[in-house]
Structures are given as structure tokens and as C-alpha cells.
Design a protein around this nucleic acid. Sequence first.
DNA 1: AGATCTTGTTGCAGGGAATGCAACACCCAT
DNA 2: ATGGGTGTTGCATTCCCTGCAACAAGATCT
Lengths: 248, 248
Amino acid sequence: MSQTVDRALSILPLLARGPANLEQVSQQLGVHKSTALRLLRTLHEHGIVYRQPDQRYRLGARLFALAQEAIENLDVREIAHPHLVRLNEKTGHTVHLAVYEESDVLYLDKVESRYPVRMYSRIGKPVAITVAAVAKLLLADLPEQERREIADGLDYPAYTARSTPDAAAFLAELARVREQGWATDLGGHEESINCVAAPIRGADGRVVAAMSVSAPSVVVTADELLTLLPLVRRTADAVSADYSGKPR
Amino acid sequence: MSQTVDRALSILPLLARGPANLEQVSQQLGVHKSTALRLLRTLHEHGIVYRQPDQRYRLGARLFALAQEAIENLDVREIAHPHLVRLNEKTGHTVHLAVYEESDVLYLDKVESRYPVRMYSRIGKPVAITVAAVAKLLLADLPEQERREIADGLDYPAYTARSTPDAAAFLAELARVREQGWATDLGGHEESINCVAAPIRGADGRVVAAMSVSAPSVVVTADELLTLLPLVRRTADAVSADYSGKPR
DNA sequence: AGATCTTGTTGCAGGGAATGCAACACCCAT
DNA sequence: ATGGGTGTTGCATTCCCTGCAACAAGATCT
């Protein structure tokens, strides 16, 4: 809608992939060097972009700080956090909180396992949407048409032999998840890692977030992990209650 | 430098503090509603801003994802990470990596303690610059004049009785740190938490990052933590060697 | 129900701001 | 010295952004 801003913002994903100099930026944007320079300057003044000693540009500190501050102020996160901590204390495993937003599922919060073996994930990182237990819950709650459109538009990487293979399988899984009100990922992302997840609902019953407990099978078997399901669901329900009780 | 972009970017810190509706944004920016609307639309198209069900705007998923992607692609981080992990395995304590950038020190990476008692910190979060051991190292390497200017411009919050009280004390501490080539924070940020830190240097000898080991005094005393100093310094030197050996 | 207020959205005309050009400055190699 | 590569600046032109005002859509009140 606004050309200048549009161009400026297009620089960001470009720099996210790694540092770039003025010429590279101007070429990839398809504008004159001087134009790119002025856009970069403006971004620089706001700390969004940083100029390295070698003059190349990369994303700057304030961007991280912004993302951080914003993520910390999210209502769900704030409300859910103490529950996540308690769940981690009880189970010892890694606990995640995730939300869906405009065709992305991303981790909002995480409490790390107390066992030495850890799974890799990072707050703010997009989730493996076709296999993650939390993603299934968040997508399963969408209207059917939207679900279908999204499922059709996705890639289905075969992380492991148990990964969701295609849109049909994914939609079937979503239907099941929607029915039962909880979800699992048994080795669909990484061979040895299992998750159980439960939805967090707002006052109107819509799913606003999902939380999960994850553990590598060297620590607990999938069956053992499944015994935690009632606890996870109770915790999620407690968060739902807190959340819809006093949204502000 | 570019008015439109400048205005658009000014919206971000505003939204970082919490969701806002169109009118609030337009007022705080000092522009007409229609202008604010178009800026927000553009931000929205790029996923930087998200429109909540209640129509209010807040920072969006892609912003987190961007910040995340960028932070993961930083050279120092990539090179240092395995060293951090090994240091964590050897000591069991929380290990941090931090850099300085335009009057901010921020955590780039973190490996959590294996002990149940953890300290609070988050990647991407600005560091308590007047007390953190890593911050001292990063600032100590700057030219004297710059150090002084920064020191004068800072606030000196009294987190604890041992926090750096003022600019004079801070500059003195920086001088000492610069001299000895390592730094500590003994309860300056949180009463019971101690850190030891060492600098990571580029090929030209300039400090490009700093790493630290932190532990609460209920786990190890400050004196015990200090015995780890040689190990921390060796690790930092190893990272320096890796980093300046093959920067790309 | 109807009236009124609040908040978000759209078309439009005028003017200011962004654009690309070209010339310049600078650094490093040869 | 000389040349290529890269970043920077001044400037005229034009286009895009701006603010206005009218409209649309809810929400709240009588």
C-alpha cells in the first residue's frame, strides 16, 4: 500500500539470511543504489539494521529487543507461564507454548527439560507445522474450508518415516485431533522425540494457544509419556480458565 | 531520512508495549488516521504487524521469525555455539554469549544450567549493561572517549548493594577489566548470582563478543566459580582462534 | 427501534517527499 | 599514477503520500 515502506520492509527478510552490502540490497530490491541507501539509513536510525565494521548491513539489536518485548507482553504467554513452569517441575520434561498466526505456528514460550538430553527448539521459531502436536491442535480449530486451503498449500517434508506424508493424511489427522481434543507427535519430527499436547481456549471456546510436553524416547517411552496426558490437559484447562476469566 | 519509513518504524516500539487500535496509533504518531491505517496495512502485509480478532494491532509472527533467523545466522554465534555447549557440559552451569551493538549489549546465545536453579535471561534481551560481566568486557574494549560518553549516558540502577553505583565507578571497573582481560559480576545484578566472563577477539585483537559462566551462590560459592576462570578463558580463546582463522 | 457516538475505511486533489541520475569521494589493488 | 569497485551527495522531476471529508459499520444509549 505504501511503496516506500514496502520496499524498506522487503529489505528485512533479505538481511535475515545474512549480511549484505549496499549494491546487493539495491539489486535485489530493484531500485537505485541511492534509494536503497536512504532506506537503509532510515532502518539504521531506528536500530533495525546494523552496520558492520566491514560496512555490510545486517539486522540490528533493536529488532531482537522489539521481538522480545512484544513476545513477553502477550497475554496468553504471561498467563500461561507459571503453569508451564509447574508442569515442568512435575514432569521434568520440556514444555512448550505455541500460537497460530497467519499461516505460521510459532513457539511463544518454553521451559527446558531437567534431563540432560534436550530437544532443539527456539522461542519465536516457526514450528514444523505438519507434524508438531501443538500445530495440529491450532489448525484443527480453524473452519473446515480454511483448514483445507492451508493443508493444500503446505509442504510435507519427510523428517522421519512417521512424518505426515500429504494433505489428505494431515486433514484426517486434524479431524481426529479436533474430535478428541488433544494431539500427539510420535517421532514425526525427530525419530526419537515424542510430544503430547492440549489446547488452551478463550471464553468463546476458540483455541487461542496450545501447550505440549516433549521428551526423547531414551528418557521415557511414548507410552509412558501418554500417561501424562491427563495432567497436560488439566494444566491447559487451568490456563484456559485463567485466560477467559480475566483477559486483561 | 525517509519520512514514510520513519513513521512506519516508529509504530513498532509503540506496539511492542502492547496492542493498540488505529486511533491510538495515529495519535501517538501525530498523523491522520488514514495515514496510520495505510502504514499499518503495509506492515501487516509483511507480517510485521498482526491484527487481533478485536481489530487491535500488535507485533506479528514474522517479526519474531526474522529476529530469530538473523540471530541464528550470526557468524560468532555459529562458531561459538559448540564451545558453549562443551563448557556447559564441563561445568554444568549456565553459559552466555553476548555482543555489543550501538549502545546495547545483548545475549546472542545461551546454554542452560543443568542444575534445577536457573537464572532468568533471554536471548535477544538487552543485558543489564552496568553490572553484567560480559557487558564490562565489551565496553572496556571501546576507545576511551567512547567509553566515557557511554558511561555518562547510562543509568545506574541499584539492583543490589553491589551494583555499580555511578559512572566513575563504572569507568574504573572498565579500566581494571581492560587491564586484566576478564571480568566478573559478583551479585551485582541479582544478590545470589555470580558470573565470570572472558572476551572473544577477532583477528585484529578487537573484542567482538564475550562469554560467561553464571551460577547462583546456592550451587557454588563465588570463590568456587572463580576457579573456573582459566577454563572460561581457554574456551574464549579457542573461539577467538576459530573466529579469526576462518571468518567466513 | 431509532438516534447518536465511536471507530474504521475509501476517493480525491494538491503538494511535498522519494526517486534516479550523474558527479564526486574514497579505498584498494595493480 | 591509474583504474575499478563501492559508498555518498545535490538536484530536478515526477509520483506517491498526505490530510480532508464523506461514508460505512458497530456499539451504546434513550
